[in-house]
Write a protein that binds this DNA or RNA. Structure first.
Lengths: 142, 142
DNA sequence: CTTGCAATTGCAAGAAGTCGCAATAAGGAA
DNA sequence: TTCCTTATTGCGACTTCTTGCAATTGCAAG
């Protein structure tokens, strides 16, 4: 698992600035251990960085996702959520009740290899979201 | 492939109203043959329905997606796009140049069965988006 | 320690999308 | 055809998110 220090060093090496704003946002995500919405991140980070703006939070999340430090995902309500890119995984969400299951990336490894073979692309891990009905809701006949 | 008439009949049977607004939006999507953004849909549909509002377009797209008449997807720029749910497929997008490849759902059939077995969920088809680097861009060493 | 460059941020304006409520209208029953 | 119920829409206010630009600041060089 990458610490904030090693992530910072890596990003600096690539010519990026590690500002207090960026460090605070990274720390919020690192401490959370789950995904957060931009407004969740803003609410927490602005406690440590008075004067932080939401525009900066949005820009920083997008920057960290582009650098693969953070995974972005849509979880079905049209909103983007973010999480530290520590453990590759995907989500399976019940369309009726919203219950969410985490899926290891290992389950998709073969598919990814197959898609690479068929397409010529090199796939990056992304935070996929699958939808379905959970065991409780599919019995209810929705 | 379902015609607008048969989709309308099906929705009416479920107690929904098939208003001129909904028919116009369905027709725009049906004629497009590709995915459209909400503002694309609004621009086209409002030609036929003067007075149509964007609020109605957003609500109708969300309604049609919920009824599985339309597939919604995020294509990497944070925006939602919509397409008739005619041919189950997914997307593979190059993160560098934006080039997009369409992936048949058939390639994911086994994975879906596997996930159903492992989770107890019944998966619905969703419009997944994979990311990677296309053959041209991965050679460029990004 | 100082300086200069260019990346990053704050700010305000604007775009995209959502919500509550009254008015409108789809459609079934009579 | 008329009437009534209730789903749906228009509207305006609001929230969420993005953008351009000037000011600020991280950081490498000296």
């Amino acid at each position: 698992m990458n610490s904030i220090d090693s992530l910072s060093t890596m990003l600096r090496k690539q010519g990026f600035r590690m500002t207090p704003q960026r460090l605070a946002i990274l720390k919020v995500l690192s401490d959370a251990g789950r995904h957060l919405s931009p407004s969740d991140v803003y609410a927490s980070a602005s406690k440590n960085i008075p004067g932080l703006t939401e525009a900066t939070v949005y820009r920083t999340l997008e920057f960290l996702a582009r650098q693969d430090v953070v995974l972005a995902a849509h979880i079905g309500n049209g909103k983007m959520v973010y999480e530290m890119a520590e453990c590759d995984h995907h989500h399976l969400i019940c369309r009726a009740c919203g219950n969410t299951l985490q899926i290891d990336h290992a389950l998709l490894q073969k598919l990814y290899q197959q898609l690479e073979g068929a397409s010529g692309y090199r796939l990056t891990t992304s935070h996929l979201t699958f939808f379905g009905l959970c065991p409780d809701c599919k019995e209810g006949g929705k």
